[in-house]
Amino acid sequence: MQRRQFIHLSSLAAGAALLPGCAAISSLTTGPLIDRHVPKDYSGVVAVRKDARSTLVTHASGLALREEKQLVTKDTRFLIGSITKWISAVTVLRLVDMGKLDLDAPIGRHLPELPAANGAVTLRHLMSNRSGIPNGLAEALRKDRAVEKLEIGPVEAALRFGAGAPGAAPGERWDYSFTNWVLVAAVVERATKKTFTEVVEELVLAPAGVRDTSFAATGYEDEVGMAVAYGATGERKSPAVPPMVAASGTLYSTARDLVAIADSVYFTKLLSDKARKELSTVVVASEDYALGGKVKTVTTKKGARSLAWEAGAIGGYKSLLVYDPLEGRAVVLLNNTDMQQSEQARIATALFSSFDE
């Protein structure tokens, strides 16, 4: 099987410098910490860092492409699923800082074609999954799987799938719906007059200096450097990546890049203090959910820590970024064998807490 040469969309970021004190990123020999907590049959990448001044230690194991026995390396790219939502939220908050968007303004300002009740919801409602707008895209997919092959953008998809009569008042009910994020992307496109993917590249990925993070397109499995996802019985389990759901879950990345993005969010002036607070404030307590991702409290021997807890599942790809905004402690797990997210969470918690033992 011949794989196509990888073409990266973030060429404008290729020369960007990493944060001072965080440039020493390498795949050091696997230490006892990872050996102790990560299963020997793990397929993917595990990375740990004690704090923002320390080296990111990266361990790669398993196969990126089973058919040709291509090994996973520290630079292998994985789809990161709903971690994309967190990066989308950072993008929106940058636009809020710039005065181009308002978290609490009706989205009908930008999408006047929507029914009045739908246009009355806000970005805050959408990004905390409490809009009350039904998941029209999911319903359409249940009726016809061919919908996932539609090559339409967020605005067209928002008007087609986000116009259903609300089932609850805005802010009243939690619903983890990717139609919410189709609407978010549509608002961004209308406000900036650019594609959503271009805005993410410009406002988040380029400033973070990442080189191996961008949006997957049809045929991504065949790109050199990309892991292929597999199910429990060995079958390929790589999902479709229609452009209309870009804000919800079609980014790919590496462990190194995910930590670099988090460093940029929490240790540079990428976001204002107010925007970082919005990103870190839980809105739905029962779900530990803030805007675009979770904030969890983990108790270690040195006390409780409030962590950015960004998990993703798409097809057979499972991913998790756990990051301490105060110290820069980080744990990343990327997997291409459809492992249980609860098992990833267990491993990440053990790795994170081990530094305090």
Rank of each mutant, 00 (worst) to 15 (best):
S353F: 13
K100A: 13
R142N: 15
E139S: 10
T122I: 02
L279V: 00
K277E: 01
L19P: 03
R190K: 10
G15S: 13
K296F: 07
I152S: 01
A14I: 04
L103D: 02
T73K: 14
L326R: 12
H59W: 12
G303A: 05
V45Y: 09
S26A: 14
G153L: 08
T179Q: 06
D257H: 03
Y42W: 13
R130Y: 03
A186K: 09
V259A: 03
L101C: 06
G292T: 03
I107Y: 03
A262W: 13
E343T: 12
E343Q: 11
T29W: 04
K74M: 03
A290G: 09
L71P: 01
Y230P: 00
V46L: 03
P115W: 11
N180H: 10
D97Y: 03
R4A: 15
I152E: 01
L28A: 11
M1K: 13
E113K: 09
I314D: 08
N118W: 06
S11E: 13
F352T: 00
L18I: 07
T268N: 00
M1Q: 12
R346K: 14
G62W: 15
S272C: 05
S43F: 02
D324L: 06
T29E: 10
P166L: 05
L123K: 02
G31S: 02
C22M: 15
A120M: 04
F196G: 00
L126S: 00
I34S: 12
V187P: 00
A285E: 09
V283C: 00
A227D: 08
E67D: 15
T349E: 06
E68A: 10
W309T: 01
I87S: 07
